[in-house]
Nucleic acid binder design. Sequence first.
RNA 1: GCCCUCGUAGCUCAGUGGACAGAGCAUCCGGCUUCGACCCGGACGGUCGCAGGUUCGACUCCUGCCGAGGGCUCCA
Length: 571
Amino acid sequence: MAPQTGSNAPAEAADTLVGQFVGGLMIREQLTEALRVAAEAQGLDAPAEIGLEQPANRDHGDWSSNLAMATAKQAGTNPRELAGQLIERLEAAGIPHVDSIEVAGPGFINFRLADTWLHDVLTAVVDAGEAGYGRNDSGAGTTVNVEFVSANPTGPLHAGHGRGAIYGDALASLLEHNGYDVVRETYINDRGVQMETYARSLQARAKGEEPPEDGYHGQYIIDWAAEIPADLDLDDLVAIREWGYARAKQDQTEVLDALGIEFDIWFSERSLLEEGKIESSMQELKERDMIFEQDDAVWLRSTEFGDSKDRVMVKSDGDYTYLTPDIAYHSVKMGRSDRLINVWGADHHGYVPRMKAAMFGLGHDPDALEVEITQMVTLLRSGDEVKLSKRSGDIVELREVVETVGADATRFTYLLQSVDSQQTFDMEAAASQAMDNPVFYTQYAHARIKSIMAKAAEAGVERQPLADVDLSVLTNDRELDVLRQLFAGPGMIELAGRERAPHRVVQWIRDLASAFHGFYHDCYVMGDGVSPEQTQARLWLSEAARIGLASGLGLLGVSAPDSMWTDEVDA
RNA sequence: GCCCUCGUAGCUCAGUGGACAGAGCAUCCGGCUUCGACCCGGACGGUCGCAGGUUCGACUCCUGCCGAGGGCUCCA
């Protein structure tokens, strides 16, 4: 799903990840290394990747390894006995923060740590700051091009486009946070049959006629046709086409702007033709014997790459199919990026094998092209399902979604689920400013921290330098839970990037918000019965949580508001 | 018929080969003299679609079947 180059092997990625942090976040590395040393002292070949995880069940310790189970066979003993022997060695090693080590269940080695390891996490988060938190260099040195939206300039973006648009943008941010050099790009099909059909549809409406049978029938065609300047000759189809092209592009750009999506490159299909890219890529395919002529048409040998049939590139009437300029386009992109990621709707999935075949035919590594498929979105408007179909005219414009739901909630809601699953987007639920809406719950946590900080300032309480603050007073499980979530964030960001799965970040940030709300409820930062030491430590804990929330929300392109009192954050 | 994605709690969905499968919502209890109750806690709730296989261990990997959506144009 997410092929990696050799230099990005998981173990190495994990090392660079923890390497970003001093103190607490090094704990995984320390434990892994101690396990490796113990295994080698035991005369075992330690596995390349030693399993080490934070068990969901805290009774199983803070950290747990399956090393004994994985190597019992080669040791010629049973896992529990081997675990016991390894533990003796581990105890002798004196690993920082480790309180006790025990064997459990079928042979797990469970570590219990002193709270100090989490106090180190707090310091590391504050040191990293909002911009640095969760950043790693697992993708350093790799340029990746993320192509998304790529809609025809023949109408407004609809709600279905929204999912791909926001997913693509969030994925790009995620990859940037993982050290990749990212280019956000979109492709405009500004030539071809669809453009002509669009022009004729506008022309017909402008003349008060019905669009052609195979034309565009949406209400927007009527609206836009009415905007055509009086001095534009309605018999000049080219002029109408160019006007309509600009109109559609303007509309799409406005909506993308409202969602905070900006492309580095808007790539024009026309430019391919003008620069002879289509001819040159055809020529290359020919040289590699990847195309052939039959029935007056030119075909791509895509069956050699798992496609169910060969595909036509040049029709018998001499026109290119959609595929042909797109192949040239991908060739251009390959020329300036190490990896390509395309975000396509589910209705284009069948297109993958032929594009891979073309990449192969052009001498590129087909695995350098990834295609992320976003499954379909069903939209609920006032509880009723609305079908998304551009041709039928009954569409929900992305503009309507953003205007009803707000940019933040629109982004967050689209990102809630894996793009592998079909999604039902309930506009009423997404727009709701209540606790059943995860975006408000999460933003509220951030606003709440801001409110505490304001309250502290009002009361004349100043945060002392962190180095002077005694973090050992943070012993409440609520406090430690916040720190556990902050520890988990960077690993989650790395994983989410590797899996091309921004929704993982959404899950995590909801958990972080939840941990903070719990802390807030049980632990007063200021007031009666709270010592000045606790106030200081808790203010810093809150600041660390704020950094995590702001950073995570930033990755998703969602604002981290100072206050929830007004709905300005919706704008 | 072939290809892709999905099938997990009443609903919407998470789940990186590990120990008792999680969250939110819904339902039912409980909690505000302090920093935002737009909040917190508890209870209830599961044959992880079905059947095989690989593995010390499978919701996770493999095969087959069933069901849902999408795709299989010299359309885009």
